[in-house]
Design a protein around this nucleic acid. Structure first.
Length: 745
DNA sequence: TGGTAGAGGCTTTTT
DNA sequence: GCCTCTACCA
C-alpha cells in the first residue's frame, strides 16, 4: 500500500481554454459565489485555476487563501496542480479536509477551550470502544440501544447537527431518549478525561472555539480573505457553522457543488445548504457548469434520464460535444460468483482492446460485494486494488502498535491504554483494569498516574504485574520522545518482542508481521517528507487518512471500491454491479422516497464516473448474511432509456408468458447466453422454485390481515417456502408462503 | 485470568 | 458467512 504520494498529472493552466461559465467562476473573486457544477464539468480545474488566479493575478498571498476538499487525496492533488501553476506557495496555502483543517486550528488554539496540546484523535473504532465501556457500566433496565454501534452513530449524528448533550436531554420525550442523552453526556466526559477528540470534535470544537473566543475567530476570519469549498452538497451543519465563522469577516466565499450528487445525508449532510445559500449570503453570484467533458452522449443521456426521476432537485441538464459512444452493456449472471466471472471476462476484453487497467473500475453499493469479485481476481493474473474493505489501519496488529504510540504521546488516553496494558499478555485482566479505571476516575487522575503513585490499592499479585507494564512503558517513554516516528515504532516493536508474540499466538503471524513492517515503512516515508517527524505528527497524519487516500491511480491496477468512494473520480470503463432491488437501492432505503432518491443520486454518481464504457451488472441470486436470496432487477435499470442499452430489457427479463414456464419471467432464462460457466455448474436451484411461489425479495405484497408490505427474505423452496415481510405499518413477519392469505401486488 | 465454544447479530454508505 | 461477545471451565 502506498500511503504518501503526490500526483504527477500534467495540466494546461491557460485561462483561454476555459469555457465562459468556467472563466466567470475563476474570475469572480469577490463576494459569495455558488457554482452548480454537473458531473465532469471541469470543477476541479475551476478550483485550481481560481486559486492560481487569485494569487498570481491579484497579488494575494497564498497565506490568505483556504480551500476545503472532501479527501486528503483531493487536497494533495489540488496543491500539486496549484504549485505547478505558481511555484513556491506550497507551504503557505491551506488546502485540506474539514477535519485536517480543524486539527491544525485546534493544535494552535485548542487550549483556550481546554483541549490539551497533545490530544489524541479517536477514530470510529476508538469511539466504539469508548461507547462499549459506557454501555457496560450503565445500569440498564432493558435494552436501551440496539447496539454500541447504533449509539455511537446516534451520538455522531447529534454532534454533526450541533446538538449538545443538554439539548438532547431537553428534547428527549421518552425514557429511552433520556438514557441516550445521558450516555451521550457520559461519552463527552470520558473523551475529555482521555484528552481525546473524536472525528466530529475536530470540527465541532473549532466551532465551539470560534463562538466562545472572539479573538480566535477574528484571527482566522481576517486571515482567510478567500475561502473555497468543494463538494458543497455534502457539507453538514457543523461544517457549515465552521465555514460561516471563517467567512464572517471577508465574506469571499466560493462554494462548488452538485445537488444531484449529494450522497451523504446519512451522515448529516444537507443539500439545503446549496438551495439556501443565496438567502444566507445575499448578492450571491450563481454560476452553472453544464457542459460535460468526460462522458459519451449515450452515458450522459442515460444518466440525465435516470436523475430526472428525482423530484426534489434544481433542474439542470448536462450536455456534451463529445462522441455518441457505444451503448451501455447489461450483464446478467446467475449468482454473485457468475457476476464476478462475467465482469472479469469483460475486463479482460477491454485489456485486450488496449484499455489500461488503471482506467477500469468495478463499483458496488456495499463493501461485502467485493469479496466474490476478489475471489475471482485472485485466480486471475490481473493486479488490483480494493479501496476500503479491510482497512490497513484497522488490522489488529497495526492497531496494537498504534495504541502504544498513542498512549506514549498522550498518557491520559484510556481507550488505547486498555487495549495495550495486556499486550503482549502480562496477566492484567478486565477486573484489574476496571478497578484502576474507577480509582483514576475517583482521583481525577490518569490510570498511568495512579499506577505510578500507589498502584490504586489493587491486590499485590496484580500490582506486581502492573509494575512490569510500567517498567516497559517507562523504557519506551524515555526513548520515544527523542526519536523520529519510524525509529520510535521500531523501538516499540523491538522492546515488546512483538514479532515473537505474534509468532507464538497467531498461525497467520507472517502476514501480520508484514503489516507491522508496512506500518514502519509508512512511517519512514512520512519522515522523509514531513517537516515535523515526531511520533505525534505521524499519528496525526494517519488518523485522518481515508481509504481513497491510499488509492493509486498511476499504479496500473484494476480498482474496486464502493460507489461512495468513487465520488470525484473518472475512468474509461466502469462496472456498476449488483443492480438489484434490495441491494441498489438498498433494502434500508426502499420504503422511503427520500432515501430512494439518495440511492438514485448514488447511481447517477456511478454512471457519470465513466468516460466511454459503462456496464450494469446483476445476479439472479445472491448470498446475503448466509442466506441465498433471489433478486429482482433494480428499478433504476428501468429508468435507463432502452435505446441506450445494448439489448432491450423486455427481451431479457420479461420474454414469454410467465405462466408458460416457471422461470421465464425472471433472470434465470439468461444463464444460457450470458451466464458464466461457473454459474451453470452451480447446483443450487432453490431460488428457482421461489419463482413458482411467486415471491421475490423487494416485491410488494398485500396480506389480508396485515395490509401491504415488502418481501424482505425468501427461504426454502416449494411447500417449505417461507417469506419474511416488512409491513408498511412497521412490523416484520414470517409466513409459510403456501398458506398465508397474501399475494403479490 | 485465559481459553474456548456456541450464540447472536450484522451490512449500507465514511471523514 | 463471518465476526464479536458472552458464558463457562481450567
Amino acid at each position: 500500500m502506498i500511503l504518501f504520494r503526490a500526483s504527477v498529472n500534467a495540466m494546461n493552466n491557460s485561462l483561454e481554454t476555459l469555457n465562459d461559465p468556467q472563466r466567470q467562476a475563476v474570475e469572480t473573486i469577490d463576494g459569495a459565489v455558488l457554482v452548480i457544477a454537473g458531473a465532469g464539468s471541469g470543477k476541479t480545474r475551476v478550483l485550481t485555476e481560481r486559486i492560481a488566479h487569485i494569487v498570481r493575478d491579484h497579488g494575494v498571498s497564498p497565506f490568505n487563501v483556504l480551500a476545503f476538499t472532501f479527501t486528503n487525496k483531493a487536497a494533495r492533488e489540488m496543491k500539486g496542480r496549484i504549485e505547478r501553476a505558481c511555484p513556491g506557495i506550497f507551504d503557505l496555502l491551506w488546502v485540506g479536509t474539514f477535519h485536517s483543517t480543524g486539527v491544525r486550528i485546534l493544535r494552535r488554539h485548542g487550549e483556550r477551550i481546554g483541549v490539551g496540546r497533545d490530544f489524541s484523535i479517536y477514530d470510529s473504532d476508538d469511539s466504539l470502544n469508548l461507547v462499549k465501556g459506557i454501555i457496560s457500566r450503565s445500569i440498564m433496565d432493558g435494552r436501551v440501544v440496539k447496539s454500541p454501534r447504533a449509539l455511537r452513530d446516534r451520538i455522531s449524528r447529534f454532534k454533526n447537527e450541533l446538538i449538545t448533550p443538554q439539548m438532547a436531554a431537553e428534547e428527549a420525550s421518552n425514557n429511552v431518549d433520556t438514557r441516550i442523552a445521558s450516555m451521550y453526556a457520559e461519552y463527552e466526559k470520558e473523551l475529555r478525561r482521555a484528552n481525546a477528540l473524536d472525528f466530529d470534535d475536530l470540527i465541532g470544537r473549532v466551532v465551539e472555539l470560534f463562538s466562545i473566543d472572539e479573538d480566535a475567530r477574528l484571527n482566522y476570519a481576517r486571515r482567510f480573505k478567500y475561502i473555497l469549498v468543494d463538494e458543497f452538497q455534502d457539507t453538514n451543519p457543523i461544517q457549515m457553522a465552521m465555514i460561516d465563522a471563517l467567512a464572517s469577516y471577508h465574506g469571499n466565499l466560493f462554494v462548488v457543488g452538485d445537488d444531484d450528487q449529494s450522497i451523504y445525508s446519512w451522515r448529516g449532510a444537507k443539500v439545503e445548504h446549496i438551495l439556501d445559500f443565496e438567502h444566507v449570503y445575499p448578492k450571491t453570484t450563481l454560476i452553472r457548469l453544464e457542459q460535460n467533458y468526460r462522458s459519451t452522449k449515450t452515458i450522459l443521456e442515460a444518466a440525465n434520464h435516470v436523475i430526472a426521476h428525482n423530484v426534489g432537485r434544481k433542474s439542470k441538464t448536462l450536455w456534451t460535444d463529445g462522441a455518441q459512444g457505444e451503448n451501455i452493456k447489461l450483464l446478467v449472471s446467475m449468482d454473485e460468483e457468475g457476476e464476478a466471472v462475467n465482469v472479469i471476462q469483460a475486463v479482460r476484453e477491454h485489456i485486450g482492446a488496449g484499455v489500461s487497467l488503471k482506467e477500469i473500475a468495478i463499483l458496488y453499493r456495499t463493501n461485502a460485494q467485493s469479496r466474490a469479485i476478489e475471489d475471482v481476481l485472485k485466480m486471475s493474473s490481473i493486479p488490483y486494488q480494493i479501496i476500503g474493505s479491510v482497512r490497513f489501519y484497522e488490522r489488529m496488529e497495526v492497531r496494537d502498535i498504534l495504541a502504544y504510540c498513542k498512549v506514549l504521546v498522550n498518557p491520559a488516553d484510556t481507550v488505547n491504554l486498555k487495549r495495550i496494558i495486556n499486550v503482549p499478555k502480562r496477566g492484567i485482566g478486565k477486573t484489574t483494569f476496571e478497578r484502576l479505571d474507577m480509582v483514576a476516575l475517583d482521583r481525577d487522575k490518569s490510570i498511568i498516574d495512579v499506577l505510578r503513585s500507589d498502584g490504586g490499592g489493587i491486590s499485590s499479585a496484580a500490582a506486581s504485574r502492573c509494575r512490569s507494564f510500567l517498567e516497559v512503558f517507562a523504557r519506551l517513554e524515555a526513548r520515544v520522545a527523542s526519536e523520529v516516528a519510524p525509529r520510535a515504532i521500531e523501538f516499540i516493536v523491538e522492546e515488546l518482542k512483538y514479532y515473537e508474540y505474534l509468532n507464538q499466538n497467531y498461525p497467520d503471524s507472517e502476514g501480520r508481521i508484514e503489516n507491522v513492517e508496512e506500518l514502519i515503512s509508512a512511517a519512514h516515508s512520512f519522515a522523509e517528507s514531513a517537516e515535523n517527524k515526531s511520533l505525534a505528527a505521524f499519528l496525526e497524519e494517519i488518523a485522518l487518512v481515508a481509504d481513497v487516500d491510499a488509492l493509486d491511480l498511476e499504479s496500473g491496477q484494476l480498482t474496486l471500491m464502493t460507489l461512495h468512494n468513487a465520488k470525484g473520480l473518472e475512468f474509461e470503463c466502469v462496472f456498476i454491479t449488483g443492480i438489484e432491488e434490495g441491494l441498489f437501492p438498498h433494502f434500508n432505503s426502499i420504503d422511503d422516497e427520500a432515501a430512494v432518491e439518495e440511492e438514485r443520486r448514488l447511481f447517477y454518481v456511478g454512471m457519470t464516473r465513466s468516460k466511454m464504457h459503462l456496464y450494469l451488472s446483476m445476479a439472479g441470486m445472491r448470498r446475503r448474511m448466509g442466506q441465498i436470496d433471489g433478486s429482482v432487477p433494480s428499478r433504476f435499470l428501468y429508468e435507463v432509456p432502452e435505446h441506450c442499452l445494448d439489448a432491450p430489457i423486455e427481451r431479457r427479463f420479461r420474454g414469454g408468458d410467465s405462466r408458460e414456464s416457471a422461470g421465464a419471467g425472471s433472470l434465470w432464462n439468461q444463464w444460457g447466453d450470458s451466464g458464466a460457466s461457473t454459474a451453470q455448474a452451480h447446483p443450487d436451484y432453490e431460488s428457482f422454485s421461489q419463482e413458482i411461489q411467486g415471491y421475490q425479495v423487494g416485491m410488494r405484497i398485500r396480506h389480508d390481515n396485515y395490509g401491504s408490505g415488502v418481501v424482505r427474505r425468501v427461504e426454502g423452496s416449494g411447500e417449505q417456502t417461507r417469506v419474511t415481510v416488512i409491513f408498511d405499518r412497521g412490523d416484520e413477519r414470517k409466513f409459510l408462503a403456501q398458506f398465508a392469505p397474501m399475494r403479490p401486488l
